[in-house]
Design a protein around this nucleic acid. Structure first.
Length: 613
DNA sequence: AAAAAAT
């Protein structure tokens, strides 16, 4: 009995060798196109069977129906406008209903238990690895806040009254005490303040903005929303840069909102819009969305942002970078969303470049800036390696790594390898190559259909295909347990992207390995990469240091002379553009903290950056 | 230059 795919790859390799074939040969004679893969047991090299049915999230195919049984006759019959009337939770036509009771009763009959425990009251969520945060590891993390009248942090969930229903969900999630970002952000948000927060993903960031949103909606029971027509009026909007991340946020938010009467819906592109419309018609309080689909729905007048009271941008620096900013600006400023000050705006991200902070302040009103460090305050948990690999040698080198990966598997438990490439084409090509060489790989990128993307991600998470080839679509935010190894097959051009990519491993207190293939195509990254690794106490190869110093004064375009790309520091606090105070109050950062912009590496403090996912 | 995001 084989114990791992690596064994079978090794076996097939030896079979090939025995049969006199030179070089790696396909284990299978027939090519199966990507969209037909990941089907049940067509392969014999699979990892040990997934221990448990993966996650409570049983989303199948398109976004849909985690919402539970359809109520009433949907279909052609007229939409039930009652849910647009009174009552928080956007439901319960009986305007005066106590929110909690209303939500509770209705929840019982129609709300799927997002904890995946067949409706039992005290569900098992213990092995829910998504949230398996090692809370003890979050002690003594440096925290910085700035802004006027910052509410003090809390130490326990008990200190904040989120309501009994939410409290119960907190227990179901096995959250014993709030993480630092939650300790700080929740009181700020409950106090109604706008917030710009830097915190790594996986540290409870989603909960940090979801709890206050949900509690706020529950509190305001008698919000009257317009009704009539087919327009829905969500009270909260959560935007994220990828569809998968939106799904992930939605799944989390459903847990937090379970039986609170607060309805969470997700909309995103690539999936049939009709199903999403039906979900919306059944009522929506919190809308999670990717920008494109949201704009579409607003323009079709199926969604109005007029009643939005809470706006959250996840991966906010990404949302406001060149590719996204116009869309976000359109949504926030040119549609019917209430202006700054009449809504509460919260921006969360792991990295927060200074120039993005400035942009972001357009969307904020008298905001509080919050920066929270990470477990171990560094990437201690991630061993970073960089190897010089010529373009032509990358594949065979990867094969070596994948074979070596076998040794790192722990008692038959699948360990996952995430391989980042630069282009969609490159992803297809590498996936195909791995596949014909007997490696159980799949891929995710923006040219694959949404169904393929979701299937690939599921297949990877479950260990069925423990190798995932990905573009940057998977670089941010995705919480994938058991990623033991991140391979930067192609290095990104931006060090921030590198930081986000390697942050897919070493999560929640577990250790991880990150290997990068470096060659002459990556010269512009030499310096920032060398700096980052050094600050994280990683072994920097001498050759990389040489490249770094060589590029030093050539001022490549990767070298934005305008200050640190990571803003662990509130831009409002470094009025002059010179050596800002060290975030850690004179810690070990040789580069002088965040505020040093002009030179090279300008104040970008890798040790800190890496501490933020 | 590339990726992502509506159809």
């Amino acid at each position: 009995m084989r114990t791992s795919w690596a064994d079978s790859v090794a076996d097939s390799a030896s079979e090939n060798a025995a049969s006199g074939l030179s070089g790696p040969r396909p284990t299978r004679a027939t090519y199966i196109p990507p969209h037909l893969r990941n089907r049940p047991p067509s392969s014999d090299f699979l990892a040990p069977p997934p221990a448990a049915p993966s996650l409570g999230n049983d989303r199948v195919g398109y976004g849909g129906p985690a919402g539970g049984s359809r109520r009433g006759g949907g279909g052609a019959s007229k939409p039930d406008f009652g849910h647009l009337g009174y009552g928080s939770g956007g439901r319960g036509g009986g305007g005066g209903w106590n929110n909690r009771i209303g939500g509770w009763e209705r929840g019982r009959e129609r709300e799927v238990n997002p904890f995946g425990n067949d409706g039992v009251a005290e569900p098992a969520f213990e092995v829910q690895e998504n949230t398996g945060i090692n809370f003890d590891a979050y002690e003594d993390i440096p925290v910085e806040t700035s802004g006027q009248n910052v509410p003090p942090p809390v130490n326990t969930f008990a200190e904040i009254d989120l309501g009994e229903a939410v409290n119960q969900n907190i227990r179901r999630c096995k959250y014993v005490k709030p993480t630092p970002v939650q300790r700080n952000a929740i009181p700020i948000l409950l106090g109604g303040r706008d917030l710009m927060a830097c915190a790594q993903t996986g540290s409870g960031k989603t909960a940090a903005f979801c709890f206050p949103i949900i509690a706020g909606i529950m509190r305001e029971q008698y919000v009257q929303r317009p009704h009539g027509g087919r327009t829905v009026y969500p009270l909260a909007l959560i935007l994220s840069p990828t569809r998968e991340l939106s799904c992930q946020i939605h799944d989390e938010a459903k847990k937090f909102a379970y039986q609170t009467g607060v309805k969470v819906v997700v909309v995103y592109g690539g999936a049939p819009v009709n199903q999403q419309l039906r979900e919306l018609e059944r009522g929506v309080d919190v809308l999670v969305a990717t920008p494109g689909r949201l704009v579409d729905l607003v323009e079709r007048a199926r969604v109005s942002l007029h009643m939005i009271r809470y706006l959250a941008l996840d991966e906010a620096d990404r949302m406001l970078d060149m590719g996204f900013e116009p869309q976000i600006r359109k949504i926030v400023e040119q549609m019917d969303m209430p202006p700054c000050g009449r809504r509460q705006t919260m921006l969360f991200s792991a990295t927060f470049p200074k120039e993005i902070q400035r942009l972001a302040s357009d969307f904020l009103s008298n905001y509080i800036f919050l920066a929270v460090g990470r477990v171990g305050s560094s990437t201690d948990l991630i061993v970073q390696r960089v190897e010089y690999v010529h373009e032509t040698d990358k594949r065979s080198h990867l094969m070596d790594l994948l074979h070596a990966q076998r040794e790192t598997e722990v008692n038959g438990k699948h360990s996952l390898t995430l391989v980042f490439v630069e282009t969609k084409k490159g992803a297809d090509s590498l996936e195909h190559w791995l596949y014909v060489n007997g490696f159980p790989a799949t891929s995710i990128h923006g040219d694959r259909s949404q169904q393929e993307r979701e299937t690939a991600l599921r297949s990877f998470k479950s260990g069925k295909t423990p190798i995932l080839v990905a573009t940057d679509v998977a670089a941010r935010g995705l919480d994938i347990p058991h990623v033991a190894h991140v391979v930067n097959f192609d290095l990104p051009n931006d060090i921030d992207d590198y930081v986000h990519r390697i942050g897919r491993t070493g999560r929640a207190g577990k250790t991880g390995l990150a290997t990068a293939f470096f060659n002459e195509n990556n010269l512009s990254l030499a310096r920032p990469l060398a700096d980052l690794m050094q600050e994280a106490n990683q072994e920097v190869p001498a050759w990389l240091t040489r490249y770094a110093s060589r590029v030093s004064f050539s001022g490549g375009k990767n070298r934005r002379s305008v200050g640190p790309r990571f803003g662990g520091r509130d831009v409002r606090r470094d009025g002059t553009f010179n050596r800002g105070t060290d975030y850690y109050g004179g810690g070990n950062s040789g580069s002088g903290g965040y505020g040093v912009p002009s030179g090279y590496g300008g104040g970008f403090n890798p040790a800190v950056a890496s501490a933020w996912d």
